[in-house]
Design a binder for these strands. Structure first.
Length: 278
DNA sequence: CTTGTGTCCTGTAGGC
DNA sequence: TGCCTACAGGACACAA
């Protein structure tokens, strides 16, 4: 669920609530939610620290602390962060950081696939190796058609699979890859290396544009309502999705009579309009 | 190196 | 109603 736009939305909303706050107590309610170091070292290392800034890299949320430390969250499929009153009970809570002043940052993760890491900045452990190999942010200027063309050249895998590869375009997940390919008019199963130059140009632009739109509309809250802003509000990009979750429905492009199709690609649901996307 | 598949974990939706 | 299976926004290990 949380792809780049959702994590960025969470970052923007949490920042005013967290920056300047000091952590007075840590609780790990499920040990394996801590990816590094271990639950004990995590609690010990985090207590007494002050939050200085919130950052993001791909789908990772980075909570910077004093003493050069960083708390890094990955929400995977069902993770969620919220700031609650200290006495409030929270369902599926896996870790909690109590703050000065009676509030607490709650890490909620029903499926328990998400992780939180406590690291020294620039000393990332093996558990975070994926973060170091991560490609450029698609919404940053160094992600452009020339870069993308170079990364797709000669590749025989479906173009969607490569969009999901965080080493190529970080922050992209199942929803925004489908949406970007729709906007670019490219079928998800096309072999990446077979794309024409004009396709790649459109794809690079579409990817940045769809992620920026996702941020503008505060992310995508699907039917299960699992993704929420930290205050519990829903995002609204789901109202603007062109293909994702719209199997059997009419294509959104004006005058197009196509019906959105859904197909499996490497175990992931993949949506496209057979008329608009070739 | 590239690619496709299985696995982690839990809740929920849908079929029978 | 109850049971069983398939599936879910991600990432990584591993086999071919």
């Amino acid at each position: 669920m949380p792809e780049l736009p959702e994590v960025e939305t969470i970052r923007l909303r949490l920042r005013p609530l967290l920056v300047g706050q000091r952590i007075v107590r840590a609780q790990v309610l499920r040990k394996d939610i801590v990816g590094f170091p271990d639950a004990r070292g995590f609690g010990r290392g985090v207590v007494g620290r002050t939050i200085t800034e919130l950052g993001r890299r791909g789908k990772y949320l980075i909570v910077r602390l004093d003493q050069g430390k960083e708390l890094i969250f990955h929400l995977r499929l069902s993770g969620h962060l919220e700031v609650v009153d200290r006495d409030r009970k929270v369902e599926y809570e896996r870790a909690r950081l109590e703050l000065v002043g009676g509030k607490a940052l709650s890490f909620v993760e029903p499926r328990a696939l998400g992780r939180v890491y406590l690291v020294q900045a620039n000393e990332y452990p093996q558990a975070l190796a994926g973060m170091l190999k991560m490609g450029p942010e698609p919404i940053h200027e160094d992600f452009d058609a020339a870069y993308l063309r170079d990364r797709l050249r000669g590749r025989t895998a479906p173009v969607k699979s490569l969009l999901l590869d965080q080493r190529i375009a970080c922050g992209v997940g199942n929803i925004y890859s489908d949406e970007a390919l729709f906007r670019a008019g490219i079928r998800p199963l096309r072999r990446a290396g077979n794309l024409r130059n004009a396709d790649v140009v459109r794809l690079a632009r579409a990817l940045a544009a769809v992620l920026e739109d996702g941020i503008r509309w505060c992310g995508t809250t699907m039917g299960d309502g699992r993704y929420r802003l930290p205050d519990g509000q829903a995002g609204s990009f789901q109202k603007r999705l062109a293909v994702f979750g719209r199997e059997g429905k009419r294509c959104r492009r004006r005058g197009c009579a196509g019906e959105v199709r859904r197909q499996k690609l490497g175990g992931r649901s993949t949506h496209f309009c057979p008329v608009c996307q070739r």
